[in-house]
């Protein structure tokens, strides 16, 4: 650090800052500190997520009942179109449960990503008035969707209990959903950063998600559809993370799913969860000091 001779007694601002231990106010904290801060804000995350759910249904007469009705209505429409009209249900036992489990699991990822993409840009006023680790916002949205999924899973459980009966393998749903939550958090963080700086992403997202929906084996069985194609094509499609998560939940809940299992689903699920969570976090954190900019 240099000081010009005539001002030897007057340190520059940066030197003064260093001398008294001042740090940059908009600087990015170290990743470990960032994670600690995020953990320290967990009650805010939960509280904010709950508040948003409450606010979302505040104007509706049926209120929070829609949390249950919305997935059910979605499932009914898809059943009508794919189950009855297009007859994708051939050779799939218990098509209703097959379809509904796929929809609920995919909706979790779909809504997390869709909401998460706008999470930063929609909360600019909050970001510009309060200091908190910005990852709090995508986190809160994913937690919101997770609680919604919990309710949907309850409905699915009732349905399967009635049609097939309860089974110990149901316990595998918990690790399955844990892995999917990890994946969703990572993916949402990436999309939140992209959405914060490139407004057009929010416009493109619905189309990307819809395409993804159709290739994830929600309405039809992927192995059955590709039965007469070379095996490696099925292996390739099985790398789709959404397909993997849907598959492991179906394996857990539906005893009749054996014939339509995707290869290596659990391994793929674990790998995607780790890659997404770690990669997504680092990617989001690297831009932490820039989110306030318009």
């Amino acid at each position: 650090m240099s000081t010009s001779p005539e001002l030897a007694g007057t340190p520059s601002p940066a030197e003064l800052a260093e001398k008294y231990g001042l740090s940059k106010s908009s600087g990015r904290p170290e990743l470990s500190d960032y994670l600690k801060e995020l953990w320290g804000r967990r009650q805010f995350i939960v509280s904010y997520a709950r508040a948003r759910v409450y606010a979302a249904y505040a104007g509706a007469r049926l209120g929070a009942l829609w949390q249950v009705l919305t997935p059910l209505l979605n499932a009914a429409v898809y059943y009508l179109v794919f189950g009855l009209m297009l007859n994708a249900a051939r050779n799939i036992e218990n098509y209703t449960a097959f379809l509904i489990s796929g929809i609920f699991v995919f909706t979790f990822t779909q809504r997390s990503v869709m909401e998460g993409t706008r999470s930063i840009s929609a909360n600019m006023s909050l970001i510009r008035t309060l200091h908190f680790p910005r990852a709090t916002l995508p986190f809160a949205y994913v937690m919101n969707e997770l609680s919604q999924l919990g309710i949907s899973m309850g409905i699915l459980a009732i349905l399967v209990a009635v049609t097939e009966g309860v089974s110990w393998s149901w316990l595998l749903v918990f690790p399955a959903l844990l892995l999917q939550t990890m994946f969703n958090i990572g993916l949402t963080l990436v999309c939140a950063r992209l959405g914060a700086f490139y407004g057009d992403i929010a416009q493109v997202m619905p189309f990307v998600l819809r395409t993804w929906l159709y290739v994830s084996g929600v309405f039809f069985s992927i192995p059955a559809a590709l039965a007469d194609k070379p095996g490696w094509i099925t292996q390739l499609i099985a790398l789709n993370p959404a397909a993997a998560y849907i598959d492991i939940v179906r394996r857990a809940m539906l005893s009749s799913h054996d014939t339509h299992e995707l290869p290596n689903a659990w391994w793929i699920a674990v790998a995607w969860a780790l890659i997404a969570l770690i990669g997504g976090f680092v990617y989001f954190w690297r831009a932490e000091d820039r989110y306030g900019r318009g």
Partner: peptide
């Protein structure tokens, strides 16, 4: 807002002790 660290400066820096 820049002093509070909520609006990043285009150039230059703001140093503070604490938050």
């Amino acid at each position: 807002k820049a002093i509070a660290g909520l609006l990043p400066p285009a150039s230059g820096s703001v140093y503070t002790s604490g938050r």
